[in-house]
């Protein structure tokens, strides 16, 4: 088999996963898309292992490890999503922007203190 087949499939699957991670609103769906990306990686590993046929069978071993780690990760990830849901009442990632630092509107912004003090002194 031409190596291109599994490699291209993995690449495209990866890209689909990327789209899912960046575009989906629900946190669980994001985790799903991460799974897609990991699976693309697994496919790559297996394909290259089949191509290389090395003595360590590194590709397959690593695939197994990846699957295991992915399972652990999705378990923990869902626990975190549940915590987020409990705290916020929603699993919407777009609502979880507490770490952001948006600019206040111009109306609420106050001028620098130095000018005020100087003008106050001039008037006095």
């Amino acid at each position: 088999m031409h190596l291109v087949y599994p490699a291209v499939l993995a690449a495209l699957l990866f890209a689909v996963g990327v789209y899912g991670v960046l575009a989906r609103r629900n946190a669980v769906l994001v985790l799903m898309s991460v799974e897609l990306m990991l699976n693309a990686v697994n496919l790559n590993l297996v394909a290259f292992d089949a191509w290389l046929r090395d003595s360590l069978h590194a590709g397959q071993a690593l695939t197994l490890f990846t699957i295991t780690v992915a399972a652990a990760e999705v378990g923990l990830g869902l626990a975190i999503v549940l915590l987020l849901f409990r705290a916020r009442g929603t699993a919407d990632i777009d609502r979880a922007t507490a770490l952001g630092d948006p600019a206040e509107s111009l109306a609420t912004e106050e001028p620098p203190n130095g000018a005020e003090a100087l003008k106050g002194q001039a008037a006095a």
């Binding site: 991670v21 979880a96 952001g100």
Partner: peptide
């Protein structure tokens, strides 16, 4: 201040934007 305000437009807090 304005420069900071401009830069802060990127700080939406949305992880997907950052990613």
């Amino acid at each position: 201040n304005l420069l900071g305000r401009a830069v802060r437009l990127a700080q939406t807090g949305n992880a997907q934007t950052y990613l």
